[in-house]
Design a protein around this nucleic acid. Sequence first.
DNA 1: CGTACCATTGATCAGGTTCAATGCTCGTGG
DNA 2: CCACGAGCATTGAACCTGATCAATGGTACG
Lengths: 189, 189
Amino acid sequence: MIQHISFSERLGLNKEMLQAFLSTAETRCYKKGSILFERDTVYNQLGYIKSGAVRTYCINDQGIDISFLLQVNGDFFGDYESYITGKRSAFIIEAAVDTEVLLFDKKRLDELIASDISWLRFSRTISDICFLEAKRRIEELLFFSPEERYFNLLQKSPEIICKIPLKYISTYLGITPQSLSRIRKRLIN
Amino acid sequence: MIQHISFSERLGLNKEMLQAFLSTAETRCYKKGSILFERDTVYNQLGYIKSGAVRTYCINDQGIDISFLLQVNGDFFGDYESYITGKRSAFIIEAAVDTEVLLFDKKRLDELIASDISWLRFSRTISDICFLEAKRRIEELLFFSPEERYFNLLQKSPEIICKIPLKYISTYLGITPQSLSRIRKRLIN
DNA sequence: CGTACCATTGATCAGGTTCAATGCTCGTGG
DNA sequence: CCACGAGCATTGAACCTGATCAATGGTACG
C-alpha cells in the first residue's frame, strides 16, 4: 500500500520494523459523524487515517464546540497528551466523513519499545514529530491573521477544505463560521 | 542548589544521572539585552535559566518583532526544533534582564544518550515535555481571548510580568503593546 | 414535500489596530 | 547636580476586522 511507504520514510522504519509496527494495529471503519474517541477517556491507542477525515474537538465552558485538529488521509491522530500521560482527555474525535483507520495499541507498542532500543528510538521520533507539528500550529496562530491562516490551510491541505464543513474549519482557525464565510468571499473577489 | 531538586523531579533523574547530566553543561552569565543565540544559527545547546529571564523572538516579513517564548528561573530554553533537526533557526534569544544560565552541549548529551538506554529514555522524556508545553500554548491561543490570556499569564507567571517589558509580553500574547496597556487598565478597574 | 442542517448575508456591536501625541523614568554627559 | 535625550508606557481618535444576533437561502435526506 502506498501509505506504508510514507510510513517508512517519515518514521524511519525498515521493512521488518514496519511489519512489526503494523502488527500492533487493527483496521476499523467509521461512518460519517460517528465517534472514534469519547470525552473523558484515556487514549490507549494512536490512530492513522487510511482514508477519510477526522476531527478532534472539545466543548468549552460556554458550551462552544472548538476544533483542535482536522486530519485527513495519511495523518496520525489521537490525543497524544492523554496517550503519554495516561490522563483522561477533554477531547472528542469524530469521523468527518466515512473513514477507515488503523488503531495502534499502546500496550503492544510499549512491549515493542521495551523489547529493543531501536523501538525506543522510534518512540522518540514519534514524540519529536508531535512536537514539531505543535510548534507549526503555534507559529500559525501567532504570526498570521485569520485570513492568512485560511489561505495557508487552503494551500497546505485543500483536502481538508473539501471534506470538512466550514463551521468546523472556522473554529480550527480560531474564528466563527460567519467570519470564515466572509473571508472566503473576500478571497474569491 | 534548589533548582537541581526540581531537575530530578521533573526529568526523572537519580543522583548519578543528575551528576552526569550537569557535567555536560557550563555556566554562563549575560548582561541585560545581550544575545544568547543569533538568528540563522544551529542550536547545538539547550539552556536552563539559573536566574534571570530570556526572550525567544523572531522578526517577521514586515520587520515586526514577535516574542515566541518568555522564560524565567528554572525554565529550559532554546529552539528545540533546530536542536533536533540541525536546521538553522529563525529565532533569536536575548537576556531580558541580567541572566545566569546553564548551557547543555548537544554533542556531550548525544554521547550520553548513545551510551545507555536510560539516557535514551531521558531524551524521550525531554521531547514529551516539549510537546506538552507546545500543546498548552496552542490551547491558550485557541481557547482564550487576549484579555483572558493576559490574566492566565498573570496567574501562572507573575515573574514574567515583573521582569519583562510590556511591549514584549504583548506580542507573546498575540496583540499590540497599546492593546495590552488597555487590557491592563481594564483589569485594574 | 417537508424538515433539518448548514452556509450565507445583513445590521450592529465590541475589541484590537493604527497613528499620533504625551508622559514617565532612567541613564548620561555637560 | 541638573538637563537632556532615549526608550517605553499610556492615552486619544479614527478605523477595521471579527463577533454576535437574526434572517434568508440552498441542499440533502427521510
